[in-house]
Write a protein that binds this DNA or RNA. Sequence first.
RNA 1: UGACCCAUGGUGUAACGGUAGCACUACAGAUUUUGGUUCUGUCUGUUAAGGUUCGAAUCCUUAUGGGUCAACCA
Length: 552
Amino acid sequence: MSEEKSLNFIEEIIEGDLQAGKHAAIVTRFPPEPNGYLHLGHASSICLNFGLTQRFPGYTNLRFDDTNPATEETEYVNSIKEDVRWLGFEWKHERYASDYFDQLYGFAVQLIEKGLAYVDDSTPEEIAAQKGTPTTPGTDSPYRNRTIEENFDLFTRMRNGEFPDGARTLRARIDMQHINMLMRDPILYRIKHAHHHRTGNKWCIYPMYDFAHGQSDAIEEVTHSICTMEFVPHRELYDWLIRQLGIYPSHQYEFARRNINYTVTSKRKLLQLVNEKRVSGWDDPRMPTISGLRRRGYTPHSIRAFCERIGIAKRDNMVDMGLLEFCVREDLNQIALRRMVVFDPVKLVLTDYSGEEWLSTENNPEDPEAGHRQIPFSNTLYIERDDFMEQPPKKYFRLAPGQMVRLKSAYIIRCDEVIKDAQGTIQEIRCSHLPNSKSGSDTSGINVKGTLHWVSVPHAIPLEVRLYDRLFSVEDPTDESADFLQYLNKESLTTLPKVYAEPALAQAHAQERFQFIRKGYFVLDRDSQDGKLIFNRTVGLKDNWASASQKK
RNA sequence: UGACCCAUGGUGUAACGGUAGCACUACAGAUUUUGGUUCUGUCUGUUAAGGUUCGAAUCCUUAUGGGUCAACCA
């Protein structure tokens, strides 16, 4: 039985190309612009581009599309490389569009010499006016018919820095009446006296996306250049330039960007969240950035599984964040070390128990290899306040007066008495235990429905815990006519400054994943210091009781 | 008003002219020393109308709906 996984439409195209002998091997590239941090949308593209060359013969380059020195920085280059590697992929060549600036300049000269490009002195406003609209044709620039000699001279002088920013542009000479607005004499080069993160001050003219991306693809002999649907109209220009230049015929294929509900995946909007301090930074655990997810405790494996499940297609989509959460729970359930932590404590005293003992408990019931550890037990414990109810509803099988529950990995106890203060707040729950019900050697013959987590008060260590919720309160924060910031979820971060944990957690390492039993999955945050451990909740456990009891 | 892209349960994605499947979600039950996990089951779908065909989610036409295109951004 072969596990026949169906191909997505791009894999089908590649399989067809390979079978037809069009290519012996394929070349793809992941082409980020280093002007922001990578997010979930990029993860999809990374998994696609790198995944393709794992499945088919060939390789994938990492190429930075760094043609706009005004917004691009080395900080972003470094974070992008780190994130791609963290996701589990390695590129064949690390390249930059700026590596090709000399060749690109040569291509521009070729177009000028063929009469297919001209220097335009029009202002941005004039060029916009010449452009026409989607339904009305454009008009020719008055500079459109300059001689080849004049164009060459002016372009050379543009390069030499004789003109200020924005004074002139180099435009392709195609057709101002073209039905496709991108074909209406698109700008190829613009003047920017700006420092570039790699080429420094060598250049004061920079190529536009359309005159860099496809040419870089061709230089690298990329066979399948994959991008998102908004570039569909660019393909005509992409092909035109390649044809006129007579360079390697890379082909562009488009797929629909993945949208995920309750968040935004737009670098502009994410930048805004960072700049306006709505979040603590690009790696704020609430951010849909790779670095945010990493800090939140997501595993590379879970993100890859997510991308695999949401697939690749051309139709508009809105993926449920719940699927991402499912993927990370699925992974973490297998690997997380179980620990007991009480968030909202109420004291529980065993009136018929004295002294202390260390009990054995498994680190991960899903993984026998994870072994066991010892946990301290005494007659003074903390349990969760909401694990006790004086007047329990039906089917509540936690602790209540006269009721029995098991303390995880310890004894079955019965609630005998409740001590309250003048306001009626419970101060202490007094219980007795069944000595012969000890975990592992239970001869009591009693079966209880509920099992509670707990910590021994004298042994407990304090922790800070940060609980996260979705960043936005509506499914599509960008859809509404209002500003997306208006839909920020004000409860996206809840900090519990002091919770009580079993002592084993004092030895937690940054890379370890934990499941705080009945609470969720947690990871150590980098804000932790000696003596002050901080944990991020990656995701909660599925909670059928909470959803069932809320429904009433 | 134009051109282009897209349309399968609540969500995502398959079916390549021949039984509409998978995953998530939701719901019901079993198991469980985590109301977790695991297991079993249930609900819900081809945008519409024509046409081609023995047979259409699939091919054709039209309509409808959604998206994209008027940055010296990518």
